[in-house]
Design a protein around this nucleic acid. Structure first.
Length: 570
RNA sequence: GCGCCAGUAGCUCAGUGGAUAGAGUGUUUCACUCCGAAUGAAAAGGUCGUGGGUUCGAUCCCCACCUGGCGCACCA
């Protein structure tokens, strides 16, 4: 599809303006009031170079470029050149493009480049709660955005499956655990052992030594400890996978912390060789004071390694293994400092690809009662949220559409879609307070609203007895039937989608797409109300159905990027 | 104390160096004999946290302050 801003900029361009066409394109804006045109070019900045009043400049430009065939009208209002694009031209371009075969909305920016996305990454043996939804769902959407823009994407679940906590867990399991308990509800059981260990260790500090020894045995690969650890990991992963299956999320790699455990000594050696490691209070650090980043702890005073060390090893491994174009970490904003330190250390180590490592932070989820705390019982499990949303959908559907054959499947798609959509609606950096009322609200700017719009479009096509493919193949669409206000407003929003997808990918911000999708749905519903689609005149009906089919396809493809299904009825 | 982030309608949030700052929700109305009412339309609702500065123009950029969140060495 032609980029309309570029097209206009090329027409406006003139040597005397002292601006490149690309600069002009970046200055072109979309007026808030559509009566002011589809695009506007403000001339304030030109006043200095041309030594003329802005309205005068605008008038001259408007005069010069009007009459171009793809412009319906060009007018000067104050300092602006307002351009009205020929509606039939835009509509024709859009329908041709969107209804051709295959996917739509992507581009090939990323051809031959690999993007690694580290997301979800829960700790083994801890419950998967509502706080985990953010990294999981945002990360998945970012993966899809990059796939759509042509990149080869590797989604990594960097499991928290290592550390002294496993020494504690093994000790606790041996003392108070049982196999039946563990098999029945692994996470609950493991969490119980872990909590009990801490209670007991208060009274019997020697337990901590035992745990440390046990972890050392695990690190040395002692068969008994290793087998237990492996079992804990496997059982936990099974539970996580239940949630991932509900969300429809998969990973390309589960290489977690344990995977890098043997790669850390080399990192420590390297830091030593490069003269970056400094002894401080018995520990080894990299001093980042001069950069205002304090000290990065590399090894504890007992010699064992830490988070930062593992992340350095991980980055080096990923560079060598994937030769990434970008290495993205979807991790809470609480870890901003950690990631700044980590990037600085990589830079000091001489790795210029450090600039391709990107921390994508997001805000905190809390509960009305306060911040989440598993130990204090202040926790909402993600699985419960999803199940409740599905259940609520089922109740609504039974009221509205009792005879629906695929009730179960559709309830799942809509209920879970509602939760995902909600999560991807706001800027990821914002903190929010979890609220049942909010996730279970299906009116207004919600996932079910968008899905409903899609189902409605499907319903019209069904009634008309025509498919998307047939409309795509039909020889000619008479775009003159699609020039009404609401039809054209919808066309414009659909036209912007590829650009919106690219923008969302570049900014690592799925909410940009979510918001736009709501606009598309609103615009479609307005079109649906304003105009009768299934009219008798065949040419008019076909043209309108083509726009319906295009909307349907666009909504489906965008929902897919967000990780949400688009049922044909609901 | 220092650093980072946020502050926009009653509530939840978009937005942008430019024309009259927008949605949803809630409130009050209206529209199903009509392609799906999980919908659409209308009304009402604003000191864009405060004060300076830069600019032809600032809600947006810079500085200070206020409020809230997060972080600041042996957890991750």
């Amino acid at each position: 599809m032609v980029d309309l801003k570029t097209l206009i900029a090329e027409r406006i361009y003139d040597e005397s303006l002292g601006l490149e066409a690309a600069e002009i394109a970046s200055m072109i804006e979309v007026p808030q009031d559509e009566k002011m045109g589809d695009f506007a070019f403000p001339c304030f900045r030109l006043a200095k170079t041309l030594r003329k009043a802005p309205p005068l400049i605008a008038a001259e430009i408007a005069e010069r470029i009007s009459g171009e065939e793809c412009f319906a009208r060009v007018q000067q209002v104050n300092a602006y050149v307002n351009v009205f694009i020929d509606r039939e031209f835009v509509t024709g371009e859009l329908l041709k493009d969107i209804l051709s075969e295959g996917e739509w909305g992507g581009c090939n920016d990323g051809e031959g480049k690999t993007v690694v996305v580290d997301f979800s990454s829960p700790n083994i043996a801890k419950p998967f709660h509502i706080g985990h939804i953010r990294s999981t769902v945002i990360g998945n959407a970012i993966c899809n955005l990059y796939r759509k823009t042509g990149y080869n994407v590797v989604g990594v679940n960097h499991l928290g499956d290592y550390g002294t906590q496993f020494g504690k867990m093994i000790v606790a399991y041996r003392k108070w655990g049982s196999e039946e308990e563990l098999e029945k509800e692994p996470i609950k059981a493991l969490l119980g052992y872990y909590t009990k260990f801490h209670v007991e260790a208060e009274k019997h500090p020697e337990l901590n030594d035992e745990a440390r020894d046990t972890f050392v045995r695990l690190e040395n690969g002692e068969p008994e400890e290793y087998a237990l650890w492996e079992k804990f990991r496997e059982l936990s992963l099974e539970e996580f996978n239940r949630v991932y299956r509900m969300l429809g999320i998969t990973f390309d790699s589960y290489a977690g912390e344990s995977f890098y455990s043997d790669k850390m000594p080399a990192v420590i050696e390297e830091l030593k060789d490069k003269g970056l490691l400094v002894k401080s209070e018995g520990a080894n650090i990299v001093d980042l004071d001069e950069y205002g980043l304090g000290a990065a702890l590399i090894t504890k005073s007992d010699g064992s390694s830490l988070y930062a060390t593992r992340d350095i090893a991980t980055a080096i491994y990923r560079k060598n293994h994937y030769d990434f174009y970008k290495n993205i970490y979807v991790v809470a904003s609480q870890q901003n400092l950690h990631f700044k330190q980590w990037k600085k250390v990589l830079e000091l180590m001489g790795y210029e690809w450090e600039k391709d490592c990107i921390h994508v932070p997001f805000g905190l989820v809390s509960l009305e009662e306060g911040t989440m705390s598993t130990r204090h019982g202040r926790v909402v499990f993600l699985e419960d949220v999803l199940n409740n949303a599905v259940e609520k959908t089922r109740v609504i559907m039974e009221e509205k559409n009792a005879d629906m054959p695929e009730l179960d499947e559709i309830s799942r798609e809509v209920g879970i879609g509602a939760v995902i959509f909600q999560e991807l609606s706001n800027n990821r950096i914002k903190d929010y307070v979890f609220s049942w009322d909010k996730v279970l609200n299906f009116d207004g700017e919600t996932g079910p609203y968008v899905q409903y719009t899609h189902a409605r479009a499907c319903s019209v096509l069904r009634k008309a007895g025509i498919t998307e493919e047939e409309l795509g193949a039909s020889a000619e669409i008479k775009t003159e039937y699609l020039t009404g206000e609401s039809a054209y407003a919808l066309v414009k929003l659909l036209y912007q989608i590829p650009q919106v997808i690219t923008d969302a990918a570049v900014k690592y911000e799925p909410s940009i797409l979510t918001r736009h999708l709501v606009d598309v749905a609103q615009s479609f519903n307005k079109f649906y109300h304003d105009e009768h689609i299934l009219v008798d005149d065949e040419e008019e009906r076909t043209a309108k159905l083509a726009l319906v089919a295009a909307s349907k396809k666009a909504i489906r493809e965008c929902l897919a990027i967000l990780g949400i299904k688009a049922p044909e009825r609901m």
